[in-house]
Structures are given as structure tokens and as C-alpha cells.
Amino acid sequence: MLHKKSNVPFSGTKEQEQALLEVIHELKDEKGALMPILQKAQDIYGYLPAEVQKIISDETGIPMEKIYGVATFYSQFSLSPKGQYRISVCLGTACYVKGSGDIYDKLMEKLGISGGECTPDGKFSLDACRCVGACGLAPVMMVNDDVYGRLTVDDIDDILAKYE
């Protein structure tokens, strides 16, 4: 069982796999190939699920753990896909002092996922972000391009309902 495996079912296509294999075979014998392979893999799939890391491990002989270690070290890599609706909660200073941490916690609870993850139906993904320049509205969250400000935890149900 993979505990940190994305809870969104993997839906990679044959074409994506073909593209990944090509990238691997082109780069694999170069020194320090792992970073560029992971970057290209993320371009192809949008994220780096266990299934993709396994292909990379099997093809390069690099242990899966080493790949996972790199994928979790650099913030440019994501283990989960982005949802149809990308929620980001501002944890910048102004928002944080006004309680955006609570909003973030509430969203995790409501959606049943942790930060950086996506709901199993692929609908919502949740991330934290830095100051989005709307401090006057703190605390702030965004759903795709929609900005919601002066939030309280009680607003969350209504906001989510708009996207159901």
C-alpha cells in the first residue's frame, strides 16, 4: 500500500507513456538525468503520480525512493494533479493573522484532503499560497481566478456549493 499515493485514480494514456519513455531513453545515460526526466514527466502528466515514478524507476534503475525523495524536495514537483477547481488559500502575513490558517484547516476537513492534494473525483485541489496582493480583503482565498475576501470559516460551504 502506498500511503502518500494520490487519491485521484491514475488516468495516464498510452501516448503519455510513449512520450515519457522517449524522454527517459534520450536522457537516461547522462549524468544528473533525474531532474530533467522528472521535469519532462511533470510536463507530460501535469504531476508525478506513483505510476509515473514507477516507470521512471523501472526504466532507469534508480530506486523509487530516490525519485520520491527528489519529487518531494523540490516544490516545483507535485504528487497530485490539479483539480478542475484550484483552491488556494493565502497564508501571507496579513491573511494569516486574520485567521486564514483556520480557513485552510476547514477546507482540508471539508474536502477530506491535505494541502497539495486533489479530491478523488478530480474536482477540487487545495494549496496554500503567499500574499496575492489583496491584503485589504484579508483573509483571502481563490478558486481558479475568483477571489473571495474577508472570509470566515462559515462562508466556506456556500463558496464550495457554487462549484458543485
Binding site: 500500500m1 499515493k5 506513483a50 525512493e65 530516490k66 525519485i67 520520491y68 518531494t72
Partner: peptide
């Protein structure tokens, strides 16, 4: 585990304060 035994099932995951030694996808 990695260099002497050539196995590499453990390594450092995550970064900064969250860094911890474990296996891929936090498998046991």
C-alpha cells in the same frame, strides 16, 4: 542501504523542517 548494499529503499523525503527518512510514498 544505497551505496554499500545497492538497495536504496530508504532516503530523505520532503524538505526543511519536514525532512524525514522513509521510503517512497511513505510506504512502511
Amino acid at each position: 542501504c544505497d551505496k554499500v548494499q545497492g538497495i536504496g529503499v530508504i532516503g530523505a523525503n520532503n524538505r526543511g523542517f519536514d525532512t524525514a527518512i522513509g521510503s517512497a510514498f511513505e510506504m512502511g
